[in-house]
Computed example of a mutant assay.
Amino acid sequence: MTQEGRRKGRDESEEERADRMWGELIQEVRVAQTGVQILFGFLLTVVFQPKYGRLALPDQTIYIVTVVLGACATGALIGPVSLHRLVSGRRVKPQAVRLASRMTFVGLVLLLATMTSSLLLILRVATHDGYVPYLVTGVVAWYLVCWYGLPLWARRRHTSRSDD
């Protein structure tokens, strides 16, 4: 196939494209949703553990921030499902796909923040050592590379201006 043939894309209407993109988006959301819900569920149990009362105030603050971030991430990643249910059959699928995509992106950013603060709390409690911020920074850098850096690099490398 020639370079030009590869760059043309699919021959689909706006509605067909929205249907395809909706299916792809929901598959992506399922993966992230499962992870954030499991993480959030575990976070909710921490406060009921005896050791929670012995945590230093900064660690309790990190925990509270982590739970709030987890709740927000959960909301943003479940939001596309509610959106679909409420607008289904109203002939607004292209607009719904764009909004759901934005909600998913926000949910992933909030999930990144939740995982960052969870890791910070766990490592602070587990090690009480000064290298914790460096470990957390390294893991967050890895997340940023995997979740945003490589996808943006691939998008830039493998698309042309006419594809946008």
Score class of each variant (00 low, 15 high):
117 S>F: 03
73 A>L: 07
15 E>S: 13
126 A>R: 07
31 V>D: 06
22 W>D: 15
130 G>C: 00
89 G>F: 11
62 I>W: 00
97 V>K: 02
32 A>W: 10
53 G>R: 09
88 S>A: 14
44 L>E: 01
50 P>H: 02
153 W>A: 14
160 S>L: 08
62 I>C: 07
111 L>M: 15
70 G>T: 13
92 V>K: 12
161 R>H: 06
20 R>Y: 08
134 Y>C: 06
145 V>N: 10
145 V>P: 06
75 G>N: 03
93 K>L: 15
79 G>V: 09
66 T>I: 14
67 V>P: 01
29 V>K: 02
115 M>D: 09
35 G>S: 12
15 E>T: 14
102 R>Q: 06
163 D>F: 09
41 G>A: 01
120 L>E: 07
75 G>M: 03
66 T>G: 08
89 G>H: 08
149 G>S: 05
96 A>Q: 11
95 Q>D: 07
12 E>V: 09
83 L>Q: 12
114 T>F: 00
109 V>P: 03
14 E>G: 02
41 G>P: 05
12 E>H: 00
140 V>L: 06
67 V>W: 01
164 D>E: 12
48 F>P: 03
33 Q>T: 15
74 T>I: 10
109 V>A: 13
55 L>M: 12
66 T>S: 11
130 G>Q: 00
20 R>E: 13
104 T>M: 13
33 Q>M: 14
46 V>N: 04
70 G>K: 00
16 E>Y: 09
61 T>W: 06
50 P>M: 02
47 V>H: 10
97 V>T: 01
115 M>K: 07
128 H>M: 01
120 L>W: 04
72 C>H: 01
99 L>S: 01
62 I>K: 10
73 A>H: 00
103 M>H: 00
150 L>A: 10
126 A>I: 10
101 S>D: 07
14 E>D: 11
112 L>V: 07
103 M>T: 00
37 Q>A: 13
10 R>L: 14
127 T>Y: 03
12 E>Y: 00
28 E>P: 03
5 G>D: 05
41 G>I: 13
142 W>R: 12
18 A>H: 12
33 Q>D: 15
24 E>K: 11
135 L>Q: 07
121 L>S: 08
132 V>N: 03
116 T>I: 05
62 I>N: 06
54 R>V: 02
58 P>G: 01
112 L>S: 12
